[in-house]
Every structure is written in C-alpha cells, then in structure tokens.
C-alpha cells in the first residue's frame, strides 16, 4: 500500500472527499516528520514509537581502492514496533 491508497481507504471509510483525506494524511505524517526533525520522540500506543538514534562517524575503507575514508556521523530514526501491532502481524 502506498500513500495514495491510504488516502483512498481513509476517504472511503470516513466519508471524506479525496482532497480532505489527502490533507489529513499529509498532515499526520508531516507532524511525525517534524517531530523527528526536531529530535522529538513519537509514541503511539498500540502502533509503535520512533526515536532518533545518533550514529558516530568512523573510518571506513573504499573496498575497491582500499583508500581510507572518513564516514561522518549521522542521525536516523529508529522504529520500535508496539505490542499490539507486533502481535497482530505475527498471528
């Protein structure tokens, strides 16, 4: 399923216009993205939680040339699946 299919499903189930459903779905994910950009945790009971993990930089090697290269640190969201979701997916 992609975002437009999610929008269609929401519109159908909640009797919304596609335009309204699109606005809602975009707003939901934009709120979540914005939280992560500002380093805020997301915690949705039954679904899961996201938090930003910091990864340190390290010295790596280009496997082809063997050159040592500096790999910079980065931040990535980490998703931990919630109890309810993990149970329904596994059942």
């Amino acid at each position: 399923m992609n975002k437009s299919q999610l929008i269609e499903a929401l519109a159908k189930h909640e009797n919304l216009t596609l335009k309204k459903a699109e606005l809602i779905v975009n707003a939901i994910f934009e709120n979540m993205a914005e939280a992560l950009v500002t380093n805020e945790r997301i915690e949705i009971r039954g679904f899961g939680s996201f938090k930003i993990k910091n990864y340190n930089g390290y010295k790596g090697r280009n496997p082809k040339t063997g050159d040592i290269i500096e790999v910079g640190g980065k931040k990535l969201p980490f998703f931990k699946v919630g109890k309810e979701l993990s149970e329904i997916v596994d059942s």
């Binding site: 929401l10 909640e14 939901i28 039954g46 679904f47 309810e84 329904i88 997916v89």
Partner: peptide, 14 residues
C-alpha cells in the same frame, strides 16, 4: 481519522 489511519496501517501490515 487518526484512529482510522492507524487502523488501516495496522490491517495492511497484518
């Protein structure tokens, strides 16, 4: 709508 979106996502993954 928030519950519905979460519900659709959960069902899809299930």
């Amino acid at each position: 709508v928030v519950e519905r979106v979460l519900g659709i996502i959960k069902e899809t993954l299930a």
